[in-house]
Write a protein that binds this DNA or RNA. Structure first.
Lengths: 206, 206
DNA sequence: ACAATAAAAACGAACGTTCGTTCATATTGA
DNA sequence: TCAATATGAACGAACGTTCGTTTTTATTGT
């Protein structure tokens, strides 16, 4: 029979389990999320989970492999416009931070993996991430503007690292900032982009 | 009686508890560390902990307030030598990364607080950290060299953020890097410093 | 097309552990 | 001496997982 979504019943509840687990884990962490919570939120009984996953950790693995926000965020950088390096970097910076703001789960999921699993799944994830990361240096390099000689891999790291750290510090400390510091902080993202541009361009950026 | 350390017995075991809990928490995380493990490692029975702390979370709070590696790391940046901005930044970068390598617990402790406590203790910690952070911009600004107009607070964030992210990415992904990428990665810290210097200096860095 | 059959999925009680905390009691240090 | 500290058994709650059973879904035979 032709249904609106053509998933088998088993696959439907499997997805429901992963979705429920995702929401709970990014909010509470892995250890603090129980199988009963997952079952409840997914709308089935406790034991039913084990028809689809053989253990709690396997549910978490499914989250990483099938729901990692990174896979949605990174391709957006391919669409960033800008004929010159300056335009691309400034646009990409805002796009990246905006995307991070749109996917607040990204950071949580990453940190849960690091803290509670000692990053033991990172190598496998990195293989899927690498093809999404490398094009960034190409985007920058192919724009108008003469770059200092910096290895593409280092360039990519510097770019992502700078704005990731901007975002992390932002959500961590912004609440603790006094009003005056908060004001100084307002244009920090543009300052960051400017520092980065001066850092990579041979000539004064426009 | 005069002992080599003149702590009262109660204070001694209190310190032993905090030390044991620190070691376990930075290795395993908070939820995965049990009071029984702490008691065992501290060399006393389970119930004895509750003579010194009223709950598990209070033990963790003591770790944050009394053992946070940040308080040992940051003052070292005050001792970094260098007459020019270039010298100071390059030396500070290596010192910072070296300090991070010397205190691998720093990152763990920070992440545990963020993931398992949703960073709820950050505001209180920030008050103790702020006086340690602000001098960095002063160090950079007081060296020989003309700086672009960047608010000191932003400058400090950019500096720390860039090298923190370098370090985090390093320990996260280095294991997953192929041999050729690892080679490109070797001098990344100097590239980072160079990018930062070009980013903040008005004239070409030496 | 449709009953017969097999396979998949859902159920919820129960298991054995482990958890943080409490408590009555014993020991110790000032 | 007596408050401070240490003990370890005990408590109730929560955990991940297993299990026998029932119900639902998918596949087959005619």
């Amino acid at each position: 029979m032709k249904t609106p979504n053509s998933l088998t019943k088993g696959e439907q509840t499997r997805q429901a389990i992963v979705s429920a687990a995702y929401d709970l884990v990014v909010r509470q962490g892995y250890a603090a999320t129980s199988m009963r919570q997952i079952a409840g939120k997914a709308g089935l009984a406790l034991g039913g989970i084990y028809n689809h996953f053989s253990s709690k950790e396997e549910v978490f693995l499914a989250i990483l492999e099938e729901r990692h926000p990174f896979f949605q965020m990174m391709p957006i950088l391919d669409e960033v416009s800008g004929e010159t390096v300056e335009e691309y970097v400034r646009n990409a910076a805002h796009t990246l931070v905006s995307q991070l703001g749109r996917h607040p789960d990204f950071l949580n999921l990453m940190l849960v993996e690091i803290v509670e699993f000692k990053a033991k799944h990172v190598p496998r994830l990195f293989e899927k991430l690498r093809p999404l990361l490398m094009p960034i240096a190409q985007h920058i390099g192919s724009r108008q503007g003469d770059l200092r000689p910096i290895p593409p891999f280092v360039l990519t790291r510097a770019f992502l690292g700078m704005f990731f750290s901007y975002y992390i510090t932002d959500i961590l400390f912004t609440r603790a900032l006094s009003a005056d510091l908060r004001k100084l902080n307002a244009n920090a993202i543009d300052h960051f982009a400017d520092i980065f541009l001066h850092g990579i361009l041979l000539e004064e950026p426009a």
